[in-house]
Design a protein around this nucleic acid. Structure first.
Lengths: 175, 175
DNA sequence: TCGATGCTGATATAATATAACGATCGGCCA
DNA sequence: TGGCCGATCGTTATATTATATCAGCATCGA
């Protein structure tokens, strides 16, 4: 059971994650569930040591390996992604979001992630554009390269920050 | 002047880099030239502290900021790229390679990089696929996102390693 | 000459990630 | 039942990557 109270939305996503793991014969332990919950609640890329701090509020003994091991598991299962440019982690909404039920993607084992990272507000929006994926797959094939894990990251300004910056050049964040 | 002897190929690339900087009004100082030379000679992604070690053979006093400042400059000028997945740096062949004279790409200020990273032999091949670029630009536009720096990294097996692995599963490297 | 700017030297420290070893828990099967 | 085994986690220590800060020095233009 969770020591911390997560939002009901997060809890539903955790239950989905649980089901996914069950189906695959892997175990979403309390600790892993806790870490995944923290990542999901953050709603933005969050660093391992930030997670560690939060984890410690309900788990005094946690140390770096505690959170890194949990993250390794979650990455392996495709439940979270790492944003390389930020050395930070985000939940994979395509796996866990109820709104995305019918998107048809199967992320299991593909380990591919595409992000639009806003340097204004720090958000990272996961896109999963089939045409980017296809172009990359084609280029790899031409090179005789067999891709295993693929990272696509664009850093720039989201629409809100871009509008805000146009209005007042010193703007740092929106909502 | 270089303290270390670089290959004549590297020297030619350094001269090109010098010309590029001159054209832009930036300065490829001895130190920066030295660091760029080390990156180019490596011929594969190389970590900042590896560079530091090499730099120290001819420059006893070098410290981390020495190499990071040089790398920041080189990144800004598009003369090297950072491979995020490896926290390592490679020369941008499209800027510096004589063979690529007529490729028509203008990388200046675009800060985009696409790599095929082989986990077998540690090579990182820069591709610069226009269709990947176009797909990404289109996806960003649809999201109202203005990309500034773009990273595309596929980790997997290059053709040589893939062949070697098929032949003898324990293989680690080719040539 | 003066100040502004850009580059480097040098020390210290922050931030991110892993190694290594032992303890515990559960399942599995002789 | 008892013992083995693999998976998970606790704990300490350390490795790796990156930045902050301040001082010195050169260059350039006013």
């Amino acid at each position: 059971m969770s020591v911390q109270g997560f939002s009901s939305r997060t809890d539903r996503m955790l239950d989905r994650a649980d089901a996914v793991c069950l189906r695959r014969g892997s175990r979403l332990t309390d600790l892993r569930r806790q870490v995944l919950g923290l990542v999901l609640e953050a709603g933005r890329p969050v660093g391992a040591y930030d997670l560690l701090d939060k984890l410690r509020t309900g788990h005094k003994t946690a140390a770096p390996p505690t959170v890194y091991r949990a993250l390794d598991f979650l990455l392996e299962e495709g439940l979270v992604h790492k944003v390389e440019r930020l050395s930070a982690f985000v939940g994979c909404l395509h796996e866990l979001c109820e709104e995305d039920d019918g998107c048809g993607h199967d992320h299991s084992g593909s380990h591919t992630a595409q992000f639009l990272i806003c340097s204004g507000c720090g958000s990272a929006t996961e896109i999963d554009d089939p045409s980017i994926h296809a172009s990359l797959a084609a280029a790899a094939r031409r090179a005789g390269f067999k891709p295993h894990k693929v990272t696509v990251e664009a850093e720039g300004l989201c629409s809100l920050c871009s509008a805000a910056t146009a209005a007042r050049p010193a703007a740092r964040a929106h909502g």
